[in-house]
Amino acid sequence: MTQDPFVSVRGVSKTYRGERSTVGALRGVSFDIRKGEFVRISGPSGSGKTTLLNLIAGLDGPDQGDIVVAGTNIGRLSMTQASKYRAREVGVIFQSYNLIPQLTALENVLLPMIALGRANSDRARELLDVVGLADRSDHNPSQLSGGEQQRVAVARALANDPALVLADEPTGNLDDQSAESVMVMLTDAVRERGKTLLLVTHERDRVKAIDRSLELRSGVLSSYQIELPQEGVS
C-alpha cells in the first residue's frame, strides 16, 4: 500500500537509568500503522509494551528515534503541546483505569472535553450509553465494579473523538467475564468509529478483528505480522 502511515515509529530507543542499573526498555523499534488499523501489542512482562504506548501518547519522550502521529513528531512537543495533542488526537485507557475518584462517571467522561474547552454533557451521556452505563452516570468510581470503571475509562477515551486509541492491558485487572464485556465494548466502539487502536494484551483469542500483531521481546520488535482472519468473525 502507498498510503501514508498514520503512526510511524522510527528507530525508537528508550533507556531507563536507575541508580544501579540501566534498562533498555526499547531498542531501535520501527514500524508503521495505517489509519483505522487494529494493532495488538504483545510480549512478555518487562518487554517494553507500556513504554511504547507511553511514548506514542507523549507521556514520555524517546531517547532516540522519531514517533510521528498524523504528521506530528511527538518526541519534539513541549509539555503544553503534548497535552493538546493528547486532548485532540489520543484516547488513553490505562490498566488501572485512572478515574478521578471524587468525580462521577459522567464528570470523568467530561474531563477530556473540558481540557479542550468544549464540555458537552449530552455527548458524555451518549458515550456512557455506548458502554452500557447510562444509568450509572452519577455514580462515583468507588460505587462501580472494576469492569464498570474500565468501561467509564473507555467512554472517557472516546470523549474527544480521537483518531488514535491506546489501551494498555485494559482488562488486566478484571475477571474473565468483565474482561470479555470490556473488550467487546472497546473494540466495537472503536471499530464503529473507524479509529486506530493500539492494544496491549496477553489474551489472544478474546480480541477479535485484529489487523496486525506486534510482538516485543526485551525491547526489540521480534515480529510484526498481518493477522489472519480468525474463524467465527463476520
Binding site: 507521556l59 509539555m79 497535552s83 493528547r86 486532548a87 485512572n98 478521578i100 473540558i114 472517557r156
Partner: peptide
C-alpha cells in the same frame, strides 16, 4: 500527584492540571 498527572494525561494543559 496522580490526580494532577491524570488530568495532564487526559489533555489538560500543565497550568490547568
Amino acid at each position: 500527584r496522580r490526580q494532577y498527572a491524570t488530568l495532564m494525561a487526559l489533555g489538560c494543559s500543565p497550568a490547568m492540571s
